[in-house]
Amino acid sequence: MWAVAFAGGGTRITVRTYGRSHRGLRRPNNEDAYLIRPLADDGVLVAVADGVGGGPAGQEASRLALETLDGAVAGKVTDIALLASAVSLANRRIYESSQRDDALAGMGTTLTSAVIFPHRLLVAHVGDSRAYQLGEEQLVRLTVDHSLAGEMEALGELSAEEAQNHPNRHVLTRVVGPFDHVRIDVTDLPWTARDRLLLCTDGLTAVLSDHDIWESSRRFSGWDLVDSLIALALERGGPDNITVVLAESVPEQGDSHGR
């Protein structure tokens, strides 16, 4: 767990981050990975990646994506363009590795990354991992799944339920790595200390609805929230690797450690 303190609006606010990745119950290995990196300028970079391409290739892709992202950001992100270019660099790095090694040909990964500043959130996203804003009143999905079902849902062609039950819901339309260019969705939005940020891979959302996540997030926080979400996904079969990263802002005073 990382805790980053920043001075915001007079009171000191601490962002605490929690991340866990579980192999799940049905997959032979874990192709997911996550990254939590405190930044120099009062921010924290978080990301999840879900490798595509089977076994070692998937693992290599997600690992390489996060490693590149981390290196490119180099402890400092000032704006969304920088975050996006880091994702773009990750794409290039994976693409080139896959060109060199036959066993890695076609590998790719989802990559959902975010930088939390005291009053601002940056998100760069490719694939079907998700970022949620857990507000006080509601849960907001900040990303569109780059799958056939997800994009059709975003365009209003499918209902959320139809998309959830789509047989091709895991077939991706965009991932980082297989081609020399990738289109990246970016968001730059205001943020408050009351908002919590949840990043997760589709191992969670394949079996949990937005409503399930919202219910859990009202009851739990910190490690409890992360673990309860993973436990629920496992209870429902744990068909895929499950990765959850949570970032919460808490006031400096009082007991703020994850329980």
Partner: peptide, 10 residues
């Protein structure tokens, strides 16, 4: 989807 979550690219 029966091939659960291998997440192949479209």
């Amino acid at each position: 989807g029966t091939l659960v979550n291998t997440g192949s690219l479209l």
